[in-house]
């Protein structure tokens, strides 16, 4: 009889993305060389989306990392202390707004942007606002050029 063990689901979803180590090394290199390379953590449960945004930002002068759920994102944030957090809102488990509130408490300096293509997000943002946390919401889909412009403007401001 063939024996088969299902892998633990948490192993698959909580694993740090491949890009993480590379991005961490790049950030360290840029810091050592003195060149400015703002770090950004991109969080989305859609793997292709998170990775493609991170890759675009990496070729556009950022040090970008991706995470596919909020709890992994929290772990990365603690270690990385990114300049930016760009997170999807509707995700399984902890949603993007709750993640944003935790990151704001932990790292008040980190600029936070939420992005979503779903309905029902306005209610979550309103709840956060009542607790004293206001976040900017970007609409999906957003052309990469517009996203990069937005991040650079925030960096200068």
């Amino acid at each position: 009889m063939l024996e088969w063990t299902w892998p633990e689901i948490s192993q698959a979803t909580d694993k740090l993305p491949q890009s993480f180590i590379a991005a961490q090394e790049r950030k360290a290199r840029s810091e050592a060389s003195g060149a400015e390379c703002p770090s950004i953590l991109v969080v989305d449960d859609e793997v292709i989306l998170a990775d493609s945004v991170a890759e675009i930002l990496n070729i556009s002068g950022f040090c970008a990392f991706s995470a596919y759920n909020a709890s992994t994102a929290l772990q990365i944030t603690e270690g990385l202390r990114p300049d930016f957090l760009l997170s999807d809102v509707m995700m399984p488990g902890m949603n993007g707004v709750d993640l944003a509130i935790r990151v704001r408490r932990m790292l008040p300096e980190t600029e936070i942007l939420l992005f979503s293509g779903q309905a029902g997000v306005a209610d979550l943002l309103e709840v956060a606002r009542e607790q004293g946390y206001a976040f900017e919401l970007l609409e999906k889909p957003m052309h990469p050029v517009r996203l990069i412009e937005r991040l650079r403007r925030m960096r200068r401001a």
Binding site: E55, I56, G117
Partner: peptide, 13 residues
């Protein structure tokens, strides 16, 4: 919206 954003990103890349 999400897959569309992915496609836009991949085409851009």
């Amino acid at each position: 919206n999400s897959p569309l954003e992915s496609i836009i990103n991949l085409v851009y890349l």
